[in-house]
Amino acid sequence: MCLIAEIIHTCSHEKVAQAAVASLGSEFAGRVGVTAETFGLSVGAFAARAVREFEKSVGEQEKKALRAIMDRTDQPILTGLQAILQPIVDVDDPASELQALINPEESRAGQKLASAEIWPKRPKSVDFSFG
């Protein structure tokens, strides 16, 4: 199974996503938690929705960039999950920018948020130092 497909398959489940986010370190998990709270969701529910939205919204170019980030890392699935979540938790005002991610029927007159608004064509580099 492709590693991206494995992320989607496993981290689309709330409890698995919550455990995976927790294993990324307390600093990053805390930032995900703050973003999740913006929507009244648990970390696991938020991360699972973000992963499912990533699957539906991105094209091959974004997937290729994600594969490059995951390539030759010790924990490619966790690296990939962090790369998917990083641009979301780094948004200054997640409530306004990510409403479509959580409640697409209530945002922008029902229009989907463009994937480039959340996942840029060239993902940001991910800092894995948790100290």
Rank of each mutant, 00 (worst) to 15 (best):
A114Q: 12
E97R: 12
L41Y: 14
L98M: 11
Q75L: 14
G110A: 07
L3P: 05
Q82M: 15
P120R: 12
G80C: 00
R108T: 09
V58A: 02
V126K: 07
E37P: 02
S107P: 00
D71Q: 13
L66D: 08
E106H: 06
P120D: 01
V21W: 01
M1N: 06
P104W: 04
M70H: 01
S12K: 01
R122T: 14
A100Q: 01
H13R: 09
Q99I: 10
V89P: 00
S57Y: 00
A45Y: 10
V91D: 14
A68V: 11
V21C: 04
T35N: 02
A65M: 08
I7M: 07
V58G: 02
T10M: 03
G30L: 04
G131S: 13
G40Y: 09
P94N: 01
E60P: 14
F46L: 00
E97Y: 12
V51N: 01
M1R: 07
V34I: 02
K124D: 12
G131M: 12
P123V: 03
D74Q: 14
V43Y: 02
V43H: 00
L113Y: 02
S96P: 00
L24R: 00
F28W: 09
Q75H: 15
G59F: 10
Q86P: 02
G25T: 06
S125C: 10
K64Y: 06
D74S: 13
E55Y: 13
E6R: 09
E117T: 11
K63C: 15
F28P: 05
L78V: 02
P123E: 10
A114T: 07
S26V: 13
H9P: 05
G131P: 05
T35D: 02
K15T: 13
A65L: 08
S26N: 14
L3I: 10
K112N: 13
S26W: 10
L81C: 11
G30S: 10
P94K: 09
F28K: 06
R31D: 05
A65V: 09
V89L: 08
P123L: 12
E106D: 05
G80V: 06
V21Q: 02
K56D: 04
I69P: 03
I102G: 00
L81V: 00
V21T: 02
F128M: 15
L3Y: 12
E60C: 11
Q18G: 07
W119H: 07
D90S: 15
A45V: 06
G25E: 00
E117K: 14
L3H: 08
D127Y: 08
A48V: 03
A83K: 06
K121I: 12
E117D: 13
I118C: 01
A114L: 15
I88D: 05
A95M: 08
V91H: 10
T10F: 11
W119S: 13
P94Y: 05
V16Y: 08
G110I: 13
D92H: 12
A109C: 15
S12V: 07
P76I: 14
A100H: 07
E117P: 01
R52T: 13
R67G: 03
R72N: 14
S125A: 11
V126H: 02
A65D: 10
G30I: 04
M1H: 04
K121F: 12
A29L: 03
I77G: 04
V16D: 08
I69D: 03
G110F: 08
A114C: 11
I84V: 15
I88V: 15
P123R: 06
F39L: 13
I84P: 05
